[in-house]
């Protein structure tokens, strides 16, 4: 895997965890700059606040407002060290478990407090995946 084009292949690409579950998109990439050494690709960043910064001022304000209304305390940004990237293909596979990542908070909260209370939703943790 040499010659990865960061913008074409990585930025905005779908991310999946080691169990092939979708865990968001590469909303930004952090580069570590240093003198006399090539810039190092430090991490893939995922999350609303990072995305909002790329979109523009209105999105940042909206993101702040939503987080204030929802009383969100965690910073909403997942940092995936670039070393965890295992494969870059239709999606980027990272050697991590999606459960417990910051980026899954909303999904997990919705599953637990809303979706699973409706009959027929299936089991959030285990059980049959397909209908």
């Amino acid at each position: 895997m040499s010659g990865v084009a960061l913008i074409h292949d990585v930025l905005d690409a779908q991310l999946v965890d080691r169990r092939q579950r979708k865990i968001g998109r590469a909303d930004s990439i952090a580069l570590a700059l240093s003198d006399n050494a090539p810039p190092r690709v430090a991490a893939i960043l995922v999350g609303g606040p990072v995305r909002a910064q790329r979109i523009g001022r209105w999105a940042v304000l909206l993101s702040h407002a939503l987080r204030a209304v929802g009383r969100v305390r965690h910073n909403g940004v997942t940092r995936i060290p670039f070393g965890a990237v295992r494969r870059i293909a239709e999606a980027i596979e990272v050697d991590m478990d999606g459960d417990g990542l910051e980026v899954k908070h909303v999904e997990d909260w919705l599953a637990e407090h809303v979706i699973c209370r409706i009959p027929g939703a299936g089991d959030e943790r285990d059980g049959e995946e397909r209908k």
């Binding site: 895997m1 040499s2 010659g3 990865v4 084009a5 960061l6 913008i7 074409h8 580069l31 050494a37 090539p38 810039p39 190092r40 690709v41 670039f82 070393g83 990237v85």
Partner: peptide
């Protein structure tokens, strides 16, 4: 700037992706 091409750099404690 349109694109950044990176490659793998190996060192004693693992590997890094660096922009070439």
């Amino acid at each position: 700037i349109e694109e950044l091409i990176c490659g793998i750099e190996l060192h004693e404690h693992g590997r890094d992706y660096v922009v070439r």
